[in-house]
């Protein structure tokens, strides 16, 4: 199988284009997805190819157009709603939590909401405290929706297709620092990637580093650094934040007996805490040491580069946490 090098942004763009070509019911709706080309340029040129009806610029009304996406999904369409950034999604929480997540159960199974919501998340672009947070766990908390975080080019390309085929609402978190990343994409007829399982990104036997999204590359960098000192890390990319693939995590711990969780969300009451709790519940007797967490410092993400870097997980902090758990 041959491969080609493309950016994460182009992978998202291709996935959107393929979805729009493949199914008349699919349309993209959000702020500046049309003539502007998307805040992160993922939909550049799509309005020229598919027209204003299907590449639908929405006014700045997150609750309105997310709710309209839910309604359109109920009405037989397959909307992809783009929210510019996770902080703006808070304006649409009512529709996501009170409608998208509840309608199936609350209607006794009569209704499905086959809606995909995409949004950018995370720090690293010096956009300060209203454009840089990682609030994935807020959504992963809610039964009725699925939450995924494509960290690789392959997942950026392939998760959208599976999400669109899903009869339930799926939220895709794209870390803002990933869009310019380049990587290899295998040429294949079937790009679809599953949206439920975790992946072993690096196999190792000494310690398991569990992460997702924008922290995957930092964690991989930490693992490479530790390898030079003879510490053999296994790295798990969670990929799906709801549901969480417990089996992959626990199987890894049965092998390594030690874990560090890397999560750009804040430490308190977050995803890392959830994973840690699951490990206590399911793999307590496999552990040879306490579970460690590397999370964002509990401050609103600041603007200056050095403080933003200090506030978020970085390879050196991840490596230090792993050494501490291993006492090496």
């Amino acid at each position: 199988m041959t491969a080609r090098t493309i950016t994460y942004r182009d992978a998202v763009h291709e996935a959107l284009r393929e979805a729009l070509r493949g199914d008349e019911r699919v349309f993209l709706m959000g702020e500046d997805v049309g003539y502007y080309g998307g805040a992160y340029a993922c939909s550049k040129g799509l309005i020229q190819e598919f027209g204003e009806e299907r590449i639908r610029d929405a006014p700045l009304s997150e609750s309105g157009f997310v709710g309209a996406g839910i309604g359109a999904a109920l009405g037989g369409m397959r909307p992809i709603v783009e929210i510019m950034t996770v902080n703006f999604s808070l304006l649409a929480l009512d529709q996501i939590v009170n409608n998208a997540a509840t309608l199936r159960h609350m209607s006794g199974g009569q209704l499905s909401v086959p809606l995909v919501i995409r949004m950018a998340t995370g720090a690293g672009r010096q956009l300060a405290a209203q454009h840089s947070h990682s609030l994935e766990c807020w959504f992963a908390h809610v039964p009725g929706i699925k939450v995924v975080a494509p960290a690789t080019i392959e997942d950026a390309r392939g998760m959208l297709r599976t999400a669109l085929a899903d009869p339930d609402p799926v939220i895709i978190f794209e870390h803002a620092t990933l869009y310019n990343e380049q990587g290899e994409l295998p040429e294949t007829d079937d790009y679809a990637m599953d949206i439920e399982s975790a992946r072993i990104s690096r196999s190792g036997g000494d310690i398991t580093l569990i992460t997702y999204g924008g922290s995957l590359q930092k964690t991989m960098a930490a693992a490479e650094g530790l390898a030079k000192d003879g510490i053999d890390c296994e790295v798990i990319d969670l990929r799906s934040l709801r549901p969480i693939d417990d089996a992959t995590i626990m199987a890894s711990l049965a092998k390594t007996h030690r874990a560090v969780i890397v999560d750009e969300g804040w430490r308190s009451v977050g995803l890392a805490a959830e994973i840690s709790a699951r490990i206590s519940e399911q793999a307590f007797f496999d552990l040879d040491g306490p579970v460690a967490r590397v999370c964002s410092v509990e401050v609103p993400i600041p603007y200056p580069r050095h403080l933003e870097t200090a506030a978020t997980p970085q390879p050196d902090k991840i490596a230090a946490a792993a050494r501490e758990v291993l006492r090496r």
Binding site: F65, V66, G67, A68, I70, G75, P79
Partner: peptide, 11 residues
């Protein structure tokens, strides 16, 4: 209200 808008949009 947004749901109604979406149902109508689908139609």
């Amino acid at each position: 209200l947004p749901l109604a808008v979406g149902l109508a949009l689908a139609d």
